[in-house]
Computed example of a mutant assay.
Amino acid sequence: MNDSSSGRTRDPSPAAEDPDLVRARAGDDAAFGRLVAPLRRELHVHCYRMLGSVHDADDALQEALLRAWRGVGRHTGRGSLRSWLYAIATRTCLDAATTRRRRALPVDLGPASDRVPPDGVARTEVAWLGPYPDIAITTGPLGPHARYEQREAVELAFVAALQHLPGNQRAALLLFDVLGYSVAEIAAMMDTSTTSVNSALARARRMVAERVPPATQQQTLREIGDDRLRRLVTAFAAAFERRDVDALVALLAEDVTWSMPPLAQWYAGLDAVADFATEVPLGSCPSWRSLPTSANGQPAVAFYLGEDRTGTHHGWSVTVLTLRGDRVAGITSFVGEDHFVRFALPVSVGGETAVGRCS
C-alpha cells in the first residue's frame, strides 16, 4: 500500500472554550449537532469499514452519536473532539460486531460454481457485504502513521478482508493504518495496553496482506487514466445493452470472477463467466439499460432490467468492477433495488411496462 503519511497533519484539537462545546455540555442539542456535523461522513465511513454494511453503519453511527451526546459533559476538551468521537464510534462498532454476523461475499461461502443453476435463490440468512456509494466517501485528516489512502481503505477487497478479522484487530488496523492514530492513542481509545494494540496490529496486517492484492484499485485507476477508464466502463455497459457476449468477454481477464450477492453462486475463470453470461444475463434477460456510477472507490454500473427495449426498466444491480491493468478482473453485482436508493439512483428508467425477469 502507498505510504500516504507525507505532508499529513494530526487531528486539529478544538479549544476547550469552543462556544458550541460549552453549550453542548450545558444540554444544548443544537450546539452538539453543529459540533459533530463536519465529522458525520467520515465517522460513517469508519463504521462501514468496521461493519461492512451501510445499514449497520447507519445504526452504529446513530448509537455512537447518542452515546456521545449523553457523555459530552464528561469531555474535558483537552483532547481532540474528533479523536473522542472516533473512540466512541469504534467501541460502538465493536459492540455491534459481537451481536451481528460477519459480513461475507459469495467467495467466502464455498468454491466457485461449475455450472449455472436453473434458478438462483437469494440466501437471505447470510449477512452480505454491501457496497458503499462514492458520493458519501469523505477524506478526513490523517495522522503520521497512516499507510492507506482513504479511498484505498474503502475498496471492496480491503473491506472484505477486514471482515475476517476479530473486532480488536479490525479496529487497531483502521485506527493506525488508515486514520494514523498512534499506538498509545489507540490503547487509550480501546481501553487496553500498547502491547495488545501492537499484537493486534501485526496479526491484522498479516491477514490483510494475504487477502488484498498488492496493487490497489486506486493505483490501477491512476495508471489507466480517466479516458481509458471511461471507455472501458462504457464498453462494459454497452455489451449488456446489446446482449453481446463476445464484446463482454473481450474486456475480461483470464481469471475473472463474477459474484452476485445475495445469490450464493459465483463464477471463476473466463470460460465459466462466459457460460454464465451467455445463459443468464445476456441470454435469458430481455433488455438492459445502465447508468455509470462508482462505489468503494471503484468504477461501477447501475443496471436496469426490462421486459422489452421500450418498457420500464427496474433497478437490478449496482455492479462494481475490479480492474487489473485495462481488463476487468472482478465483477460484483450487488442485486436489489435498495442499493439504488443508497446511491441516489433512480429505481427505474424508461416507459410503463412491468419489470423483466431473469431466470
Rank of each mutant, 00 (worst) to 15 (best):
Cys47Pro: 05
Leu175Trp: 00
His314Gly: 07
Val249Arg: 04
Ser348Cys: 08
Asp191Val: 15
Ser80Trp: 01
Val178Ser: 02
Ala264Pro: 10
Thr195Trp: 04
Arg115Ile: 09
Gly336Tyr: 00
Ala112His: 07
Ser196Phe: 03
Ser287Asn: 08
Ile88Pro: 02
Cys358Thr: 02
Cys93Phe: 06
Ala171Val: 06
Arg230Gly: 00
Pro117Arg: 13
Thr220Arg: 06
Leu174Ile: 13
Asn296Ala: 04
Gly225His: 05
Leu179Ala: 14
Ser83Trp: 07
Thr92Lys: 01
Glu152His: 07
Pro166Ala: 01
Gln217Ser: 10
Arg206Asp: 07
Met1Leu: 11
Gly167Pro: 00
Trp258Arg: 02
Arg289Val: 00
Leu270Ile: 09
Leu270Gly: 09
Thr293Pro: 00
Ser284Tyr: 09
Ala268Ser: 13
Met190Ser: 10
Leu129Glu: 13
Leu248Pro: 03
Pro213Arg: 05
Asp177Phe: 05
Asn168Gln: 07
Thr98Trp: 09
Ala268Asn: 12
Asp58Leu: 08
Leu282Cys: 06
Thr90His: 06
Pro262Trp: 14
Pro214Ser: 15
Phe334Asn: 00
Val183Leu: 08
Gly73Asp: 13
Phe303Ser: 01
Glu241Pro: 03
Val126Cys: 01
Ala104Cys: 12
Asn168Phe: 07
Tyr86Leu: 10
Thr234Phe: 11
Thr310Pro: 11
Ser13Asn: 15
Pro166Phe: 01
Gly52Pro: 03
Asp275Pro: 09
Val280Tyr: 01
Glu307Ser: 15
Pro261Met: 01
Val273His: 06
Tyr48Ser: 05
His75Cys: 12
Pro106Leu: 11
Ala253Trp: 07
Val72Ala: 03
Glu149Asn: 12
Pro213His: 15
Tyr181Ile: 01
Leu109Arg: 05
Arg324His: 14
Asp191Ala: 07
